[in-house]
Every structure is written in structure tokens, then in C-alpha cells.
Design a binder for these strands. Structure first.
Length: 592
RNA sequence: GCCCCCGUAGCUCAGUGGAUAGAGCAGCGGUUUCCUAAACCGUUGGUCGCAGGUCCGAUUCCUGCCGGGGGCGCCA
């Protein structure tokens, strides 16, 4: 729709320029939807932008363009406004054409027709297997997952990966903390003993692996603990179960220990050394990242002989590149931002174009509790887990899955680079007036209309019109405005994918829901309905008037198009799209 | 000290080199014989942190400052 307007305006601009003998370069028209409806369906500032090239006043150019566009049947009217804006109003048929396109593609509208894009490795969550996932991980998880769905939608092939840090001091510390707890010894320095789950782990370890605990077999016990943190010691527990509860799945689980075991670290460092990127200083081996603009060189081999986390991370990312991906995307917490430059430098040094490596930084989630801010961090003991919040919300609503929908909505709704504050108490209570229900309700209402059309009007969805003439009865200005909004969906999807911005999908859907609900109520006020009235449905009398049949059919096609785009949007967000929603019993309580 | 993010309505946050800066929640006033009122309509509420600069035009881009958060390990 916008495309068509754009080509027509560009053509008009060229012809006006030719007529006036203008030879200077012409600007590409930018077409936008005006905020004010009285400014038409589309507006362009191209006359203002062309002022220099034409050596004429914007308003004069606009008037000339208006003349060039006037004969075109696509436009109902063209106005010059303000300092030289060109406001165009489209003929209804242009909307019917656009709707027809949406209907042809249905839920796939806006999606790439084939996976012709890049092969992308998307690494996200990758939380240390030393504790349950907390809300900060949850944000990364949701952002990563939705970005994955966005990339899929525009035709990339995405592999989702979780890197398990099962080799470092942290898992060792966890094992020591568990042993300490089990044997009544004091928690090691920087240990996890303050966390409640360590008690459970200690009980579990004593039960299943008593010899490892008593014999202080740290390495062996660490492996068992990592496994149990990931897979849980009972169904429904563990990091993987938490992710599943959020509707998040990874294709590949990579182990840091495995990177160490088969010599990949040494090989990666060998490659760097050969190319002169490593230098020994003060007994340690440094990667010369300052050559690539980093603040300082970074240690890869410590003076005690061990290698750093950075070293294994280089090897791990080299491995990902070796697996043939066109692009690596890592989703990290914002507290890792200082790490980007050095890893990017390492990737450059390994001979890979640094553009192939991309980091999405997800800003902090600050947790408030009853208005009191407190930091979260594994070592502080008191943090909110995803499991807790999911359970609270599911319980409050009595609808399993509502916690997942709410959390996904909440974390996807905001720009990833902005901090967000969550008051835990509010997040838990918000279950009933969370905006996610507004979205789901909108979808359910659309489904409900289509259901009644089938059950009570004897209309088969397959028989509804999808052609321009069949949709001709669609004339209400609100209906046409919503068609225009539907027409924007592919662009919104593409933008959100390109910028890795889930929140744009939330914004679009919220807008779509709002304009439809508004229309729906307005129609009532105008004493009109989409479906025939109840008595007419019952006796079938609405079928006697061909104009009514045409209008009802066209509107139902339109409803189906909205529902399809709506469902596609919810699917990108991973939020369920219920076909009907029951009322909650809670309402009665509120009245009392 | 250096680097990154943020600063927009009472609160939580969108948004844009262009016309009178938006939404949700909160507040106030309305709407229900009707396809789902979990809704809708109206209304109150703004020095777009401050100051310069670029521009025909800046809330948007640039610089400086102020405020909040995060990062600056031979930790992971």
C-alpha cells in the first residue's frame, strides 16, 4: 500500500522535475502515516525536501505534484497542507486491494516465503548452572527467544544455543558449598551457602552421591550438580524445565568443559599466536586487543598456568564460526558490555569479519519489593526466580500458562537497552489487569465473531470473499483505516527483526487491538453490527438482502484478516492466542 | 578518571529531523435491551534533564554539563 503510494509520488516528482528542467538530484520521497486522520491516509514531505533541488518554494512544488497526481484513480484526493506537506487520501479500492493481499497470505502475511536469509547462531540465556534462573535471566531468555522468532519470520535459519559454563570456579564453588552444607562445615569464601536451594542440593547429594561428598570429589560432584541444575532432580525442576515453562527451547546445548577437553582452546590460541596476536608479559600470555582499539591487552593464559574464561570463550566462538554460521548473535546481560570489544577483537584476529558477531545487550532488571530496591545476584541469596513468578501468576489466575504469557509480554514490551523496574509484588498481583489479557481478549473476540458466523449464519470461512470486488462492500472509514494498519505489518515485522527489537511487535499489536476495540464499540453506537442480529441469524432473513450479504461477507473476511495478523503477532511473541476466554470468578469478589 | 545505557505526563514506558509529542496505569466525568463491558468515549496532566551548536525546522543529530544505573580482574 505504502509502496504503491511511494512509487506514484516518485514518478510524479520525476515528471514535474522534467517539465521544469530540473537536473539536480531528487530526494527519495519518504511516505508516512500522519498522526492526524484529517491529514489523509498518507503524507509526504517530499516537496519540502526538494526545495533546494528545484530552487522553488515547497508549497509551489507541492502544488505541482498535486496536479501530476490528480488523475490517478488510486487517490481519492490530494491536498497541499502546512509548509508544503502533501496529504493523500486513497480511494476505497486501494484498501480492498491491500486487504486482498493480506487474505491471500493469511497468517503467513509479512513472513518470508522461504528461508533464503543467513544461517544464524543465536546464543542466549547461558546462565551459569549454579542456581535457578532469576528474572534477569528471564529477560534475556524472552528477548533471545523472540528475536529468534523474528529472524525465523524474515527468512533466516536460526540455531538457538545455550552455552553451559560447567568448567569454571563457579561450579567448583557450588560443589564446595554443597559439601560444606552437607557436612556442617562453614561455607567457602564467595560460596553459595546462603541460597536456600543449596540445602536441597546437599540433601540430594547425600542421598545419591554420599561417597563423592564425603570424599570431597569436587570435579565429579560438580558434574553431577551441573546435570541436576539443568535437568532438575524431579520433573518440573531445573533450568531446562523453567525455560520450557516459558515456552523457550534451545537446539544446541554446548559445554564449556567439552571445549577444554578436546584441545580447542589450545588450537584457537595457537592460531592467534601464529598471527602475532599473543605476547608474554609478566609471566602471563596476553591477547593484544589494544591493536584493535581495546583499552588494554587481555590475559588468556595466567601466570599460574591456567587459561582464563576469555581464552575458552575465544575457542567457543571460533567453534561456532567453524560450524559455518553466517552470523553469531549473543544475548548478554548489560553487565557484560565491557566484554564485547575484546571478544569482537579476538574474532577479528581469527580472521573473521567482525560484523559477523553481534551482541544484544539486555539491560538490567531492577527488582523492587514493596518499593524497596534491592540488588539481585546469586551471591546475595535473596533473589526472585522465574519459577516463583510463574507459579504465583498461574495460581492467581487459575489459568495455567498465564504466567508465561504475562512474563513474556512484560519482558518483550520494552526496549532491550532500557532498564526496567519490576516491583515483585505488583508483578505478581498484576495478573488480572496485565495488558497481555487485553491482547488475548482482542484475539478471542475476533475468533468469537468468526465462530458465530459459522455456527449461526451458516457461513464457511472458505467461502468468504478474498477478491477486490468481493471486498467492495467494506466502506466504513474505521475498517479501511484498520486495513491500512494491517498493510503495515510486513514492514513492522521486518523492522523489528532487523533492529532486534521485540517491543515493536508489542507496540503494533497493542495498537491493532486498541483500534479494533474502539471500532467495535463505535459500530454499536452507530446501531450497526458485523454479524446479522440475533433474530435475523435465527431465521436466516438477513440473506434476503444481497447488499447485507455482501457487507457481512466482506466484513467477515476483514475480521479474518485481522485475526490472522493478530495471531501471527502473538506467535512471534510466543504468547498464546486463545480462541475464547472465560471470565474470571474474581470479578464477583471485586464487586463485593 | 575512562567506557556503555537511560533521563519524555503523578507512575511504568513508547515515539519522531517536520504539522497541536503519545499509550497504559492512576485521577475525574460518562456509556451496557448489543457480535464477549477483561470494553469504549470524554477529560485532567509536559520547560521531552540543563546549556550551547548544526539545520529552513531539533524532543530527535553533535558537544559539554547534571542526575540514575552498569562496567572497567591473571573472576566466570
Amino acid at each position: 500500500m505504502k509502496q504503491e503510494v511511494e512509487t506514484r509520488i516518485a514518478r510524479a516528482l520525476r515528471s514535474v522535475a522534467r517539465a521544469r528542467g530540473v537536473t539536480a538530484a531528487l530526494p527519495t520521497p519518504t511516505i508516512e502515516r500522519p498522526k492526524k486522520p484529517e491529514h489523509g491516509d498518507f503524507a509526504t514531505n517530499v516537496a519540502l525536501a526538494s526545495s533546494k533541488a528545484f530552487g522553488a518554494k515547497p508549497q509551489e512544488i507541492a502544488a505541482a505534484l498535486r496536479g501530476a497526481l490528480e488523475g490517478d484513480p488510486t487517490f481519492a484526493r490530494v491536498d497541499v497542507a502546512g509548509p508544503g506537506f502533501l496529504n493523500v487520501k486513497l480511494a476505497p479500492r486501494a484498501f480492498h486491494t491491500a486487504l486482498s493481499t493480506v487474505l491471500a497470505d493469511g497468517r503467513a502475511f509479512g513472513r518470508a516465503r522461504a528461508a533464503i536469509g543467513e544461517r544464524i547462531n543465536l546464543e542466549f540465556v547461558s546462565a551459569n548452572p549454579t542456581g535457578p534462573l532469576h528474572v534477569g535471566h528471564g529477560r534475556s531468555a524472552v528477548v533471545g527467544d523472540v528475536v529468534g522468532r523474528l529472524l525465523d519470520a524474515v527468512g533466516h535459519r536460526v540455531i538457538r544455543e545455550y552455552y553451559v559454563n560447567d568448567a569454571g570456579n563457579q561450579v567448583r564453588l557450588l560443589a564446595e558449598s554443597v559439601i560444606a552444607k552437607a557436612t556442617g562445615a562453614p561455607d567457602p569464601e564467595g560460596g553459595y551457602g546462603a541460597n536456600a536451594y543449596v540445602v536441597d542440593l546437599a540433601v540430594w547429594a547425600m542421598d545419591r552421591y554420599r561417597p563423592l561428598v564425603e570424599g570431597r570429589k569436587i570435579d565429579e560432584l560438580s558434574r553431577r550438580l551441573v546435570a541436576v541444575m539443568l535437568a532438575g532432580y524431579a520433573p518440573g525442576t531445573g533450568i531446562q524445565a523453567t525455560l520450557r515453562a516459558l515456552g523457550i527451547f534451545h537446539d544446541v546445548w554446548s559445554s564449556e568443559a567439552a571445549v577444554h577437553l578436546d584441545g580447542r582452546v589450545e588450537r584457537a590460541l595457537e592460531t592467534l599466536k601464529k598471527d602475532g596476536w599473543l605476547e608474554e608479559k609478566e609471566g602471563a600470555l596476553f591477547f593484544l586487543s589494544t591493536k584493535l582499539g581495546d583499552d588494554k591487552d587481555r590475559v588468556v593464559f595466567k601466570s599460574d598456568g591456567g587459561h582464563t574464561y576469555f581464552a575458552s570463550d575465544i575457542a567457543y566462538h571460533k567453534d561456532k564460526l567453524d560450524r559455518g554460521f553466517d552470523r553469531l548473535i549473543d544475548v548478554w546481560g548489560a553487565d557484560h558490555h565491557g566484554y564485547i570489544h575484546r571478544l569482537q577483537s579476538a574474532i577479528t584476529a581469527l580472521g573473521m569479519p567482525k560484523e559477523r558477531f553481534e551482541v544484544i545487550l539486555v539491560q538490567m532488571v531492577s527488582i523492587l519489593k514493596n518499593g524497596e530496591p534491592y540488588r539481585m545476584g546469586k551471591r546475595l541469596g535473596n533473589f526472585i526466580t522465574i519459577d516463583e513468578i510463574l507459579e504465583e501468576i498461574d495460581e492467581a489466575t487459575g489459568r495455567p500458562g498465564s504466567g508465561r504469557d504475562a512474563i513474556r509480554y512484560y519482558f518483550a514490551a520494552r526496549r532491550t537497552d532500557a532498564h526496567i523496574d519490576i516491583d515483585v509484588e505488583i508483578a505478581k498481583k498484576q495478573s488480572l489487569d496485565n495488558p497481555v489479557y487485553y491482547l488475548q481478549y482482542g484475539h478471542a473476540r475476533l475468533c468469537s465473531i468468526l465462530r458465530l458466523a459459522q455456527d449461526e449464519c451458516g457461513l464457511s470461512l472458505a467461502d468468504l470473499p478474498t477478491d477486490v470486488d468481493g471486498l467492495g462492500a467494506l466502506q466504513h472509514p474505521d475498517e479501511l483505516a484498520i486495513v491500512q494498519l494491517l498493510g503495515e505489518w510486513p514492514e513492522v515485522l521486518a523492522d523489528a527483526a532487523k533492529g532486534r527489537e521485540p517491543h515493536k511487535i508489542v507496540g503494533y499489536l497493542g495498537n491493532l487491538a486498541q483500534v479494533f476495540q474502539s471500532y467495535y464499540t463505535r459500530l454499536k453506537r452507530e446501531n450497526d453490527t458485523i454479524l446479522p442480529r440475533k433474530n435475523e441469524r435465527a431465521d436466516g432473513s438477513w440473506r434476503n438482502d444481497p447488499a447485507t450479504v455482501a457487507k457481512v461477507s466482506a466484513r467477515l473476511s476483514w475480521v479474518r484478516a485481522i485475526r490472522d495478523v493478530y495471531a501471527a503477532g502473538l506467535d512471534i511473541l510466543g504468547i498464546s492466542a486463545p480462541e475464547r476466554m472465560e471470565r474470571f470468578a474474581v470479578e464477583a469478589e471485586e464487586e463485593g
